[in-house]
Design a protein around this nucleic acid. Structure first.
Lengths: 246, 246
DNA sequence: ATAAATAAATGTCTCTCGGACACTAATATT
DNA sequence: AATATTAGTGTCCGAGAGACATTTATTTAT
């Protein structure tokens, strides 16, 4: 590198040569959601080490620039490690970076949320994490989470709720096949509100992302038609939001 | 640090001690938008140095962990440096991180977009950037931008357009006081479409974020009422999107 | 001074889609 | 056969956008 002889020029070089900067640490944290026992749950890990030893945290970790080709790779790697699931619905939410969230240093964390059908999940605790558990959303606010994970989780939940008002995102929480009532129930769990049955079915029908399997579910009462997601189906965006009170 | 004696344990420590990781570089890039000559423009800088020497890039730079308390601080610092503006509307869009966007190394960039009224901007070129210019949005796609800034800018534009369909975001591009027709024109420039005048005014009136200043603008024809943004006003979200063709 | 031109602002009808809620359908239980 | 229960449909209302005509305030041309 060439000689620098004044302050401004030094700043110039600092701005344009990344190796001159002390780098922050860069992590990825994912709020992994699923439905269990008619409640929304998020996967949390109890930390084995300082800082925040013994406190619960979202699934995450540092980027490994040798293993990971991209940020999303980091998220997927951690998710696979913990749940065995390969291709979840994964959406980036927000990146927080500052010198207060980790007591040790300046850190950056990009957060994602993932939606998993509750079937086929095999939790793997293991290295560095003695406990890994599904935590009820109704109780996360009373737990003292590590880092700023309380904030991050809130943001993830807000995004999920907001999008559930005008998209078909929640279908990503459903198993292979399901009934309309079951799907509506998932929406209601996410939104924390009941929905008009007619409005709901009209919307889903209009979105044209589902098809009947032909099978019926014997519920004990009138049997319900089973639906599955069409092959080509993408998340559908409605032009109006759904409301409903009660 | 304690002894490690097998592969899994080594991985354990790597996962939990950030200092064991080779860190990616971390930058912030901002698409700074304003309206000039009835067109949406974005502020771009011609690079003085490799890589991508002489190509145009968004306003950005590396996090300076000594100067910046947070990611947003980095964005604001760079924006202030280049435009002299202190408190713009600033919204985080997406974080991209991989080993291909910068030929030198694994890098992460968090992108923001900013909305500035065209009044009161004093461009400052200077260290490391010979040219700094407002580029018309209509022409950015034919320019070969540095890094993945083409992608990032597209994402920023998509976000701005999408939100303009159901929020009052574009008021952040307006000067101190303005007429309804002027505001509508800004929406039309962003959306690239004309809007029904009646629909537009109905929405804005309903949002209740504007108040008449009492002044009138002599346009040569029927004078138009001047409006300004109410003190307490926040971005308003409508429950339906606006459409309009032609 | 009056008419024409033009942009600002409003009136009003239609259309779409969600909300409300009543109603019908298919099953199990008694 | 009657009842209970969940699945699924019919139908009317209302809010707010789209379309477009109409009125209002001003300048300019005759």
């Amino acid at each position: 590198m060439r000689e620098t002889n004044n302050k401004e020029e030094k700043q110039f070089w600092k701005d344009y040569d990344p190796s001159q900067f002390k780098k922050p640490s860069m992590a990825v944290d994912t709020a992994i959601f699923t439905i269990l026992d008619s409640e929304l749950h998020v996967l949390m890990i109890q930390r084995d080490e300082h800082p925040f030893k013994d406190q619960w945290s979202l699934v995450g970790g540092y980027i490994d620039i040798e293993k990971d080709h991209s940020l999303e790779d980091t998220a997927k790697r951690k998710l696979k490690e913990k749940t065995g699931v390969d291709t979840p619905y994964l959406e980036q939410v927000e990146t927080v970076g500052n010198n207060t969230r980790d007591p040790r240093e300046w850190t950056v964390s990009t957060s994602y949320f993932a939606l998993l059908p509750s079937e086929n999940i095999r939790l793997k605790s293991g290295k560095g994490a003695s406990n890994i558990e599904w935590i009820k959303i109704s109780s996360y606010q009373s737990i003292d989470l590590a880092f700023d994970h309380q904030y991050i989780l809130t943001k993830c939940l807000e995004r999920l709720k907001a999008k559930s008002l005008y998209t078909t995102l929640p279908i990503n929480l459903m198993p292979e096949s399901f009934t309309m009532s079951e799907l509506q129930r998932i929406y209601e769990i996410i939104l924390g509100k009941t929905i008009q049955q007619k409005s709901f079915r009209r919307r889903i029908k209009n979105s044209d992302i589902l098809m009947e399997t032909g099978e019926m579910k014997a519920t004990g009462k009138r049997p319900a038609a089973f639906y599955k997601i069409k092959e080509e189906a993408q998340t559908h965006f409605f032009t109006r939001t759904i409301e409903s009170l009660s």
